[in-house]
């Protein structure tokens, strides 16, 4: 195994709701190595979202350790967390979360604006490069309203890639898309994972999406239910080809 990007040990997260204490995560442990494509699954209430927030450094665990790229997130303050999110994590959301009335390239440049190490020339170059990687090089100046859902999600993926994070964190990234477009996005994800060796953590509740990943972590009631290596990874590209040519009616 290569180096470990994520190390989670006995992770707990409790919420105080009035007088009641809700235990969303009840001691979770697993590691993710560089280059893995992990799907995290679970029904609603399983602690999926809570785990995602912690993995994304948006929230801190109540107890236990979460090491991202060797750093214990628990020891970081608010500003350091923000810095960590900027350089270590690339978020992809279900609802894309692109800035409206803003061109694709400016949307992709956004994380770099918060990275003082990068000058304006490099910013533009890297944004163009990221958009090329998601095959949107011809649509640099299109605003989100001029793009389809799949294209918007690809812009969001480019935005996640642009700061060269150690992992991409996708939250139901295909949830708003039809099957064909979902498969296209998954094909892109697989390509990034296999060809560029990007570590991807993909939260979903759709089993057919999980089939494209290399490993599936199943949560249930805040605990790890199963953690299975996917022996036969489905190719999204092949699945796409297998779809009926036109499903219009």
């Amino acid at each position: 195994m290569s180096e470990k990007i994520l190390q989670i040990q006995d992770l707990k997260r409790e919420f105080r709701m009035g007088t009641e204490v809700v235990r969303a995560l009840k001691g979770l442990s697993f590691d993710v190595a560089a280059g893995e494509f992990v799907t995290i699954m679970g029904s609603s209430g399983s602690g999926k979202t809570t785990l995602l927030n912690i993995l994304g450094c948006l929230d801190k665990p109540t107890d236990g350790a979460y090491l991202l790229d060797g750093v214990n997130v628990k020891d970081l303050n608010r500003d350091e967390l923000a810095r960590f999110r900027n350089v270590k994590i690339g978020f992809v959301f279900q609802s894309y979360n692109l800035l409206p009335r803003t061109s694709a390239i400016e949307n992709v440049e956004l994380p770099l604006l918060y990275n003082p190490a990068i000058g304006s020339k490099e910013r533009r170059e890297r944004a163009i490069h990221a958009l090329e990687a998601v095959k949107l090089a011809e649509r640099l100046d299109h605003t989100p309203s001029q793009l389809s859902g799949g294209q918007q999600q690809r812009v969001a993926i480019a935005r996640a890639l642009v700061n060269e994070p150690v992992m991409i964190l996708a939250d139901e990234a295909t949830g708003n898309l039809d099957t064909r477009t979902s498969y296209e996005i998954m094909a892109l994800m697989q390509e990034l994972n296999q060809e560029q060796n990007k570590t991807i953590i993909f939260v979903t509740h759709e089993p057919d999406i999980a089939a494209f990943s290399s490993r599936t972590v199943m949560l249930r009631d805040g605990k790890l239910q199963t953690d299975t290596q996917n022996q036969a990874i489905k190719s999204a590209r092949e699945a796409l080809a297998a779809l009926p040519e036109s499903d219009d009616y």
């Binding site: 948006l58 608010r78 923000a82 999110r85 979360n97 800035l99 990275n115 935005r159």
Partner: peptide, 16 residues
């Protein structure tokens, strides 16, 4: 609000 959330998630600090 969502834009602010997004900016924070991609690395904007409160100060930013």
């Amino acid at each position: 609000t969502r834009e602010i959330g997004l900016r924070m998630s991609i690395g904007a600090r409160g100060m930013d």
